[in-house]
Structures are given as C-alpha cells and as structure tokens.
C-alpha cells in the first residue's frame, strides 16, 4: 500500500511537475492555493488524466510509465476517489451507491449489498441505507462517498477537498469522523485541501503545492513553524521574511533589518507569529529589539482578534485586540510602529 509518483503535466502556460511518495498507511495532506495543480495531480494518480511525462508505482506495480508507454486506466487502478461535491449517483440509494463498485467488479448482487451494508454500518448510516443522496445531509453524503470508495478496497485513497462543501458548523465533527475512518482504512491516503487546519488535523505529513511545484514537505508542526513561502506563512498564521543573516542580524530588505535572538548566517527564512507583533503610534521604547515603521493597509476581524496588515519596509501581519484597534484608531492609511521581541523570531536556513 505505497505510492511513488513522478509526473509532469503541461496545460498551456501551466506546468505541473511533482515528485511524491506516500508510505503504506500514511495520510498525506496536499495543501495549496486554487490553481496550484492539486486536482490535476489527483486526476493523474486516479488514472483519469494521462501525464505528459511520468512514472507511477502503486504497491510496487507499475501503473504509469510514459517512456514504456504504460498507462493502467482508472478502472483497473484500484484508486478510490472522493470528490468535493461527492457526486453520489443521484438515481441510486446510498446502499446502491456503495454496492456499485463491487457490482462493477463482478461481485454478485447479494454479496455486494452485504459489503455495502457493512460499510454503511461502520459509517453509522445503517438507517439511511435506502435514502437517495438528495435526502442526505452534506456530512452523510460525504460518508456515503467515502464508503463507496472504500467498498472496492482501494490501494490508494484520494480525497479532493472532502470538507469544502460542508457548512462551517458541521465541519469539525465531520473532520474528526473522517480522521477516524482514514485511520481505520490503513492504506495510503492523499487528502487535497486548501484549508491549513484540515491539513494539520488530517495529515501525518504535509506537502505544499504552489504553481505546480512542491514548495515544502514535512510533518505538520514543522511546516507550521518553518514555512518556506508567503502562502504557507499566511496560511499557518506566521509572518515570513526572506533575508541574509550575519550574526544576530538579518537584512530582509533594502533598508530593513531584523534582530535575531540566535546567531545565523547566509540566506534565511525569518518567521514570527502575528500575535507577537505589538503596534503603537509612536516609536516604542520597550525591550523589543525590532521596531519598524509602516502604514496600515487592512484591518480584518478573525474571531476575537483583529488581524492588521501593515505595509512598509517590513510588510507584516499583526494580531491585536479590538480594544487596541479602538485606542489607536487603527484604520487603513494610519502610520504605525510595529515591534517584535527578538525571542519571538525564528530564523532558519532558506
């Protein structure tokens, strides 16, 4: 139950060029912005799209090799696919949907229905077995789609934005359920998402895809603490600056410097959480070693915090309280000082 893939797809100006491997039983979260090529990659892995170049091995079986002209079609690849809008067959009951795969693979009707009933039971959907998809809630549809994919005992499970179609209120419960089911499945799984929380909760490893390239890969904590691109930093709530370090200082712009708590040298990524940033109207005189001038570009509420975007020599995000916003009259166009303690800043080699 393992996957190794190296594929390239060209679509006009867009180029997807990815190498990845997933160990048996591993759950990998494929994180990336819209248009990064995540769904294209899934289609290639599922056998629905021929890559221009590439080689894919599934459990040691060669399923794609563009040089040797090998292309095992989707129906013989045993890769389960769950799409964002689930695409349950609308004219079939939940049970018939789940039994479809085994039936198509030649299992007798009775046995296929037994398999389907067992899977629906495991998903807690026994009483909904005879409902049509449109009579089910989003979360129930997702579980039916998962059961349908699992019914053919796939060697690889591919989930494309499995929670995106659900409303925010039901997402946490469905997400927790999905995590349990993925653990129980035990095969290799790839979950595509643009939601970092989903990636952090579901993925044992995160692969970040941007512009058709893998830009970062690693355990969730590592990706969160050491983001390599603006996109990752923004997603996991970290400010990310690129710079050149020597000693305790890193130059991050033509006239911007960051004071570090630890020695570093050469090209570095400098990261600090938005919550570590203090904003003030006058130059701060406290213990913070870093203070930069800037102009407020945007003020946006996030839960009980307010995220302020500051433009300047050091562009950054700051999380402050609504009270601070009121006291400092923070609004786009206001000039501010942003301060960060050196101890809040992590620098790691780029």
């Amino acid at each position: 139950m393992s996957l190794t893939a190296s594929v390239a797809v060209r679509r006009g100006a867009f180029r997807l060029d990815v190498e990845l491997s997933v160990a048996g039983g591993e759950v990998v979260a494929l994180l990336g912005p819209n248009g990064a090529g995540k769904s294209t990659l899934l289609a290639v892995l599922a056998g629905l799209l021929r890559p221009d170049e590439g080689r894919i091995e599934l459990d040691g079986d060669l399923v794609v090799d563009t040089v040797a002209r090998v292309h095992v079609p989707a129906r013989d690849r045993h890769a389960g696919l769950v799409l964002q809008d689930y695409l349950l067959f609308p004219h079939m009951s939940a049970l018939e949907n789940v039994a479809f795969g085994p039936r198509a693979r030649g299992v007798r009707r009775g046995a296929a229905r037994d398999t389907a009933a067992r899977l629906l039971d495991r998903m807690g959907l026994t009483e909904y077995a005879n409902r049509r998809p449109r009579e089910l809630s989003g979360g129930q549809q997702q579980r039916v789609a998962l059961a349908r994919a699992l019914a053919v005992e796939p060697r690889l499970l591919l989930l494309d934005e499995p929670l995106a179609a659900l409303d925010v209120g039901t997402r946490p419960a469905v997400r927790a359920g999905l995590r349990r089911h993925l653990e129980a499945y035990g095969g290799s799984t790839i979950v595509v998402t643009h939601d970092p929380l989903e990636a952090l909760v579901l993925g044992e490893r995160i692969i970040v895809l941007e512009h058709g390239q893998v830009v970062q890969e690693g355990p969730p904590e590592h990706v969160a603490r050491h983001p390599r691109t603006d996109y990752v930093a923004r997603l996991v709530g970290l400010n990310l600056l690129r710079g050149d370090a020597s000693g305790l200082r890193a130059r991050v712009g033509p006239d911007a410097e960051v004071v570090l708590a630890h020695d570093a040298s050469g090209p570095v990524h400098v990261a600090f959480p938005p919550a570590a940033v203090t904003l003030s109207l006058r130059e701060p005189a406290g213990s913070a070693r870093n203070a930069w001038r800037g102009t407020v570009a945007d003020v946006e509420r996030h839960g009980d915090l307010v995220r302020v975007t500051v433009d300047g020599p050091v562009p950054l995000l700051a999380d402050v309280t609504p009270l601070a916003v009121a006291e400092l009259s923070l609004a786009p166009g206001v000039d501010v000082w942003a301060a960060v303690k050196a101890t809040e800043i992590t620098a790691y080699p780029a």
Binding site: A46, L48, R75, H78, G80, F100, V152
Partner: peptide, 10 residues
C-alpha cells in the same frame, strides 16, 4: 460521474 464510476472499476 463517469469518472467516479471508472475509479470504482466500471
């Protein structure tokens, strides 16, 4: 829908 059916072995 046809794609999904194909991945299910149809």
């Amino acid at each position: 829908y046809d794609d999904v059916a194909a991945t299910l072995g149809a």
